[in-house]
Write a protein that binds this DNA or RNA. Structure first.
Lengths: 249, 249
DNA sequence: TCCTTTAATGCAATATTTTGCAATTTATCT
DNA sequence: AGATAAATTGCAAAATATTGCATTAAAGGA
């Protein structure tokens, strides 16, 4: 393979994907990492891409900005996501709903972990695509402008055909009287379908959302298996919350 | 064998395959590598191809990347996208494939225009979601890490159930010998399905991608209805391109 | 036709480029 | 700080280029 060919392929990769890892290129081009490095160095000198540690990125790359991704305190969500990741096992088939907490979860999945991830969330899907070892399956259909996730009957029907190892439900509102609630009816329908399709349902919620509720109900507390917050389990106050059917993490 | 004959063969080889190895030419032409070298050197001096270490590549092979990622060619893509938007009519149901040109198209759709847009492209979908009047339907399925679009059998099957008013095929490679070609086999399959599902197929291509080809074929030129480039129609050079079955814009 | 001139080709010796490996240093993450 | 991944450097082997030269082929002139 000619050097120029490799260069072309690398540039194409960067153009389409905005970023590329050295290791991926090595496999793709069947050359050593040294060669890829030299190629990238050359292309960088020619100002055709930007060389970075571990790979290269497109020149105009300023990372994706998602609607309202970073409004809330990132730190809490990071804590929640880490706890969630501890539940994952190699080779599992999981589904992530939308929301910034799930986005953080997607971001923190270890590079090396092999998973099959379904999601109806656009931002989550993009985040997952940056991990080569994860097979990403997007649940298609009509998209909600607000939530940036797929809604509607087709998606719900689709979900009835699958059984997931774990379903991660992103931030909603939660109290022990009303259960899980949302303010978007369409989103509720999708979440219901996810819960139904999952062997185990894990809810990720920052503590602020506890003990508050919205108009539309997704499910009862008893329908979920695990609740993860940024707090220590003992500090979680769910009033009244006598029945400890739910694992707190 | 005459020198001129060899030159023609070499040029043709480069034109069709975008590149050629010295050693291959040696075998093909039954002459020493020295002769091939001298031929290629001559053709290089005549600006008919570009001599590189180990062979030769087509001129303009990497001219796109020369302009380096989105930044430089953004303007050209904007021009293309504007022409494409002129084809749209209120209330139509269209489909956009992936690629930066389609992304630009999505970006430039007027706020007020009501449309139903299908797409298998993650970035295009996100862009479309910023327009409240557009109903966005994402074609779900397994996502390509590379191209950030849905690929695979399920998506292709899904596409057989719909008939779109217009299908916009993003930048690929195009010449009149090989037709539309691509880098990525899976992407080719999706584009084929899009073309089949569309009443009218519009190809968006910056002129640099003209007269060059890649490994995998999407369709013949005769399968598309309109070709849009950033150039004036008269300036578009597709050689040989006698049959004007295609509208140039 | 024969000779001369010029261009084209192949060969061989020598340079240059490219590539992969290994050892070391540097950067990154926890 | 320690562990891990990545970058750098020097080096050697392989592939490719270059150069000079000899041979052959073609072209033109007397």
């Amino acid at each position: 393979m000619l050097k120029e060919e490799r260069h072309q392929i690398i540039l194409n990769e960067v153009r389409v994907h905005n970023r590329v890892l050295l290791t991926d290129l090595g496999e793709m081009l069947n050359v050593s990492l040294d060669t890829v490095r030299r190629d990238i160095k050359k292309l960088d000198e020619e100002k055709k891409l930007k060389k970075v540690h571990g790979g290269a990125i497109s020149l105009g790359f300023d990372s994706y900005s998602f609607k309202g991704s970073q409004i809330y305190s990132r730190e809490e969500k990071t804590q929640i996501a880490k706890k969630a990741i501890a539940l994952l096992k190699e080779g599992q088939v999981i589904i992530l709903s939308g929301g910034t907490t799930n986005l953080e979860l997607a971001r923190l999945i270890p590079e090396k972990m092999k998973l099959t991830c379904f999601t109806p969330s656009l931002p989550v899907a993009i985040e997952l695509l940056s991990k080569p070892n994860i097979e990403v399956i997007f649940i298609g259909g009509k998209l909600s402008h607000q939530a940036q996730i797929t809604i509607g009957a087709a998606a719900i029907r689709y979900l009835t055909q699958i059984k997931f190892d774990i379903g991660f439900i992103g931030t909603g509102y939660l109290d022990s009287v009303n259960g899980l609630t949302e303010f978007d009816w369409d989103v509720v329908q999708i979440k219901k379908a996810i819960i139904k399709a999952s062997r185990k349902t894990v809810v990720l919620s920052i503590s602020e959302k506890l003990n508050s509720s919205q108009r539309y109900k997704t499910c009862d507390l008893s329908d979920i298996d695990t609740l993860i917050t940024e707090l220590e389990p003992n500090d979680v106050s769910l009033v009244p919350f006598e029945k400890q059917e739910i694992a707190l993490l």
